[in-house]
Design a binder for these strands. Structure first.
Lengths: 136, 136
DNA sequence: CTCCGTGCAAACGATTTGCACTATG
DNA sequence: CATAGTGCAAATCGTTTGCACGGAG
């Protein structure tokens, strides 16, 4: 199964890279539609899947939420904001995490691990100050 | 808002504990239905939410998948099988993970982190041997 | 007797799929 | 010109919600 570089695939890839953000399928769809108004959301989904399998983009599966896609394929971790759900990059010193020790438990063959850092982004911290604490 | 201990809530809690597994809402629904056939899936969802808020059970949000609920509220981590999606317990030596170092990046206020270990469970390793490698 | 909780069905958000058509290599 | 990719609509999956009724405290 060979990959064809269609117009829509090219634009999807270009717009994700241009954004320099971790967009969800529908956020990217909105951007791509401005350039190619007749594109379908299904095409965006299909291409994001294909592009991430091909290793051209990264796929982020944050617990319990919508998937997001990463323009940056290099090795790094992410932090996400519990308030606005934005995702940012984070460089973890991986030698702080001793994977081998985790290893043998329960007879599993460990194939990988993800560290998911959760926090509140600068913008949301600022907003939280403005609106004292009637949140919830 | 006080909690009432209804029959359905009691059975849901009991069956989850009895299972000693990390069940999803619909898996638990199937079990509870055997005892109380007219119970609705919505009731199971509502109660699992309430019980986990009350701290009587744990809620696991594994990346991109269905939520699972934990009979064991004590502090521990999880490992999940990429093949069958089963979840098992794992005790991580948390001092292997240096949270403070992760800290300041990007101006986020860090509220927590999850370590998600991914692997293949013993059963699936065994199956993989039997069916050589025509998978995919 | 007050409301929290229930069952049911419908609504929901994210994602996937079947189909006939289009266009890349 | 074969067949990967597209647009569209409908389907699916996990979960939530509105509503009228039922039962715990």
């Amino acid at each position: 199964m060979q990959l064809r570089m269609t117009n829509q695939r090219e634009i999807i890839l270009r717009e994700l890279r241009k954004s320099r953000q971790h967009l969800s399928a529908d956020e990217l769809y909105d951007r791509v539609k401005l350039i190619m108004p007749r594109i379908s959301l299904a095409t965006v989904y299909r291409n994001l899947e294909i592009l991430s399998e091909a290793g051209l983009i990264g796929k982020l599966e944050i617990s319990g939420r919508q998937k997001r896609f990463d323009f940056d394929v290099s090795d790094h971790d992410h932090i996400y904001c519990v308030v606005c759900h934005k995702v940012d990059n984070l460089i973890i010193e991986r030698n702080n995490v001793n994977v081998d020790r985790l290893g043998t438990a329960a007879g599993y063959a460990i194939t990988g691990y993800r560290v998911e850092i959760v926090g509140i982004c600068p913008e949301c911290q600022k907003k939280a100050k403005d609106v004292p604490k009637n949140i919830e």
